[in-house]
Design a protein around this nucleic acid. Structure first.
Lengths: 344, 344
DNA sequence: GATTTTCAGACAAACGTTTGCATAGAATTG
DNA sequence: CAATTCTATGCAAACGTTTGTCTGAAAATC
């Protein structure tokens, strides 16, 4: 009892007209007379006809699907971002094929393969923190599959990307601390190679020099975001010669671990030492000592913008076939913004 | 300069053999002589040939894609679940098309449509909390697209599902409280229609009767999981005639809000009143007053199991065409488990 | 050596849709 | 009324792959 789905062919046969007429009638092609058009559309409805998308994908050489590769959905940043992506994609009638790299370069490569196989029209990627080799990304270019990177951007020339400028936010954060009287401000930064890390550092330095304080490299430590390395960094900062009274951490998760470590060292949070961070997680409202302020990076908007950009690229592509000279690259920067929590 | 991707046809032409031979050679079909097979495979490699999956999907009437519809990725439960799904899918060479309903029944319906259009082979669904009408799900049955529900299961007969039995966990949770001396235990339960809510209630009643305590309905309140309703319920419980010294909450998020409300009412947490909940979120480690214990629901495993079940169904389908009498429905229940936090 | 079996490969249909081109008849024009 | 333009429709190719059936030749059988 294989309840075969009705096809355009079936409709044609029942109405004794040609396949092409049916196809055109369903697309409201002006060449088709109003009456046949109606007859077709009615029968289609009656049979619950639905076009076979796989056939269309195949025929058109497009899947109206965009692939998304990101490190880790359980991080609030990315789950927000994917919502922005989904929403923007849906608006343009695209579908999303998603995969998590779990910060493994291998998994990432594998995902790219899968996506390529599935013939996604384009890709949105936030690279894993362990990716050092960018060949597999570049290979895609030759397949003519456009990529828009977001948030975690690889260091390769001539790419499209959407990111959030952390410099300003960092300056804001540090100025905020200055205003509250802090003079020695430490920083627990991220993995050295991440651009995000460099930006935070740059913001830090800018803020320092603007305030005519000297930049003391001993006050800025890197960590690899694991709990151990965060604790180590915290310990080192708080037992150093110049003990900071405030610390800027790479993100809210880092802040949480740093706070715990500081407590373990018998420091009173918000008294002996304060924390400011990045991300602005909703859960911060519930933690024992949320950071006094947090730099918002607008993940939803980043996802949205990246998707819109990609779709624009896709539409461009179908437009000017020959004009491959179209070598402009989108570099979209959103501004971060400090959000102050301490009011409550 | 349209760098046309090479096709099987191209290979055939260059080697002066037929298309079918190439196809078979690439699949290591025994009918093809070893030498031609090699020649084909070598040329394929040299040209960087990759089969056009869209053509294959179309030709085979299968996409090797499974759709996943879930309420909200930003909930830790679901982001874990999707990881389990992804991993299990990948193992069987399936791809995942995901969409969030954001707990909207409309969005859910829309997603089902998209998935249907994309001809996913099967679906994994955790229904939105606002879904009351199950027609669109049932419609899929007639399209012969199998569905496996997980965690949030609709109340319709004859479905496949994977869920976690909350009854046992609830009993464990309440016994745990009894052992600690609590005699009046309240409960802030979820939305009335959710099966999950009913299970928790049943566990509550079972534990009560087993301990020869009377079940007092005034001690069990429902909420719709919004902050306001949680606070209202907490207030009512804590200012009721029989004031509980311990409260079991629907999940960790509810616990967080309830704790805040209790504090606002000047109760000392863990002294005047304790909390126990469900989910076992990692972030609980960082909150001011994490629940003393939490019932783990194994989201990753649920996702994994659901996916495996779906894939089994899919493989079955291709097997016994005629045997539609195969009316066995998978009802897979994982056991929940109480995890005690207070050690630390 | 004649017959059968095996082997290696070719042919062609099928999957469902879109779309450029052709065409028969109707309507319009002069 | 003949010539032209429109209108409504049909025909057939194309997209890339898989797969059932066919065939010619070589190998094995008796």
């Amino acid at each position: 009892m294989e309840n075969k789905l009705p096809t355009i062919k079936e409709i044609a046969k029942q109405l004794n007209i040609s396949i092409s007429t049916v196809s055109r009638a369903l697309h409201d092609h002006p060449n088709i007379g109003i009456q046949t058009r109606m007859r077709v559309q009615e029968l289609a409805k009656r049979l619950h006809y639905e076009p076979n998308q796989t056939a269309i994908f195949f025929q058109q050489g497009k899947t109206f699907t965009i692939g998304v590769i990101l490190p880790e959905l359980s991080e609030a940043f990315f789950s927000s971002a994917i919502s922005g992506i989904e929403d923007a994609a849906q608006k343009a009638n695209y579908t999303v094929l998603m995969g998590q790299s779990h910060d493994s370069a291998d998994k990432e490569k594998q995902l790219i393969d899968t996506m390529k196989k599935h013939r996604v029209d384009g890709l949105l990627i936030s690279i894993s923190k362990n990716t050092t080799n960018y060949e597999h990304f570049e290979a895609l270019q030759s397949y003519n599959i456009p990529i828009v990177y977001f948030d975690r951007i690889p260091k390769i020339p001539n790419i499209h990307y959407v990111a959030c400028n952390m410099i300003n936010g960092t300056v804001q954060a540090i100025n905020f601390l200055f205003k509250k009287g802090h003079r020695i401000v430490g920083m627990i930064n991220g993995p050295e190679k991440l651009p995000a890390t460099k930006e935070r550092l740059e913001g830090y330095i800018q803020a320092m020099t603007k305030s005519r304080l000297k930049y003391d490299p001993a006050l800025v430590l890197n960590c690899d975001l694991t709990k151990e390395s965060v604790c180590a960094a915290t310990e080192k900062l708080l037992s150093g010669r110049r003990r900071p009274t405030a610390i800027v951490t790479f993100n809210d998760y880092v802040a949480l671990d740093a706070v715990q470590q500081a407590q373990k060292m018998k420091f009173k949070i918000n008294k002996d030492v304060c924390f400011v961070s990045y991300a602005n997680l909703p859960m911060s409202n519930y933690t024992a000592f949320p950071p006094l302020a947090s730099v918002e990076q607008f993940p939803y908007q980043q996802g949205q913008k990246a998707t819109e950009t990609l779709i624009e690229l896709l539409q461009q592509k179908t437009g000017d076939e020959a004009e491959t000279t179209n070598a402009t690259f989108y570099k979209i920067i959103l501004e971060s913004q400090l959000v102050i929590h301490e009011g409550k």
